[in-house]
Amino acid sequence: MPLIKVVDIRKIYKMDGSLEINALNGVSAAIEKGEFVAIMGPSGSGKSTFMHILGCLDIPTSGQYFLDGENVSELKKNQLADIRNKKIGFVFQGFNLLSRTSAIENVELPMFYAKISIKERREKALQALKTVGLENRVNNYPNQLSGGQQQRVAIARALVNNAPIIMADEPTGNLDTKSSHELMELFVKLNNEIGLTIILVTHESDIAGYSKRIIRFLDGLIINDEKTK
């Protein structure tokens, strides 16, 4: 059984008047546990829309989504929140850390909503920050960290709750080349050592080169899906 399986996913945005935008036009795919997938495609081809649906941040207009065998497309808002909390770590292009909140507190956030005790939260957050190499930036605020460091905090936050999947939408989009490659090496390490399933959206083929499989989108459809390693 694949970890992720989507069947004929469609997403239609209804705009004012009768204008409809078909962001996804029937996407089907399966991703196994431990895979490292890069999603590529031109701007507006529906990559982000697809990622948001995979990440349970958004719901498809039609189609089915099975996560770990569970039919996620039938779940309610609060149940989706639970899935995001326990199974998915999301990394955004714009970092999306809470400002005026220290690195470690940002990392603790998912565990706060998982109702884990303060003591355990501290320990696990420290451990996660160590994993991403930020053990000496624990108490810094986001505005005191570089873009690369902020994105590492976001990754620590994504993996702290032992979520099996990390989804990243253009995680290197706001980073320079050096930080981008350091970040990708971190993803490779997490994929190899912990066996995390990683799905990332990127425009750059050298970034996609770190992955083991590339799915290409065009006009809301998968046009190419190949294993590269």
Partner: peptide, 9 residues
């Protein structure tokens, strides 16, 4: 952000 990491209603 809070909702993305699992905050419920």
């Amino acid at each position: 952000i809070r909702m993305a990491v699992g905050a419920k209603t």
